[in-house]
């Protein structure tokens, strides 16, 4: 059941570098699960979270194949969050900072996110019930 409430979250960390990414995705999951809309402003390295070319890999240290390892990718987790939003009848608006995308060559992303700007973040925050900024170090 949609609550009509909205949370805006800004994130900066590149995938596979920081626990911040996992925590941010956990917060987004919890908010969607509770029926809230979520706006995400992916700034700087965080635009890489949704890149389509991410691939799971085998693990030579563990001796596992790709199939056995089932290595997670952030783009798959985020695709799953988009599905959760749809199932819950709420909106996940994922805004990849356009200039950050350009300088990283990160323009090929999964279905769901859109290209945006700091202005979109400001407008999203202003219209939200809560805003949380999760910076990088």
């Amino acid at each position: 059941m949609a609550s009509g409430k909205t949370i805006t979250i800004a994130i900066m960390d590149a995938p596979y570098e920081s626990a911040n990414s996992t925590t941010a995705l956990r917060i987004i999951h919890a908010a969607l699960q509770q029926g809230h809309n979520v706006n995400v402003f992916a700034y700087e390295g965080a635009v890489n979270l949704t890149m389509k070319a991410q691939q799971p890999h085998a693990n030579p240290v563990k001796g596992t194949t790709v199939e056995q390892e089932q290595h997670p990718t952030t783009k798959d987790w985020i695709a799953s969050l988009f599905k959760l939003a749809k199932d819950k009848g709420v909106k996940l608006d994922w805004n990849n900072c356009g200039l950050c995308v350009d300088e990283r060559g990160a323009g090929d992303w999964i279905e769901g996110p859109r290209r945006g700007s700091p202005k979109d973040f400001l407008e999203a925050s202003s219209a939200s019930d809560a805003t949380l900024v999760i910076p990088t170090k």
Binding site: T23, I27, Q33
Partner: peptide, 19 residues
């Protein structure tokens, strides 16, 4: 607590969140 609880706290009116 868990993230469900954090989301509820974030959405309480007049709440300011600082990371």
């Amino acid at each position: 607590a868990d993230m469900d609880h954090l989301v509820k706290l974030l959405l309480e009116p007049g709440t300011k969140a600082i990371w």
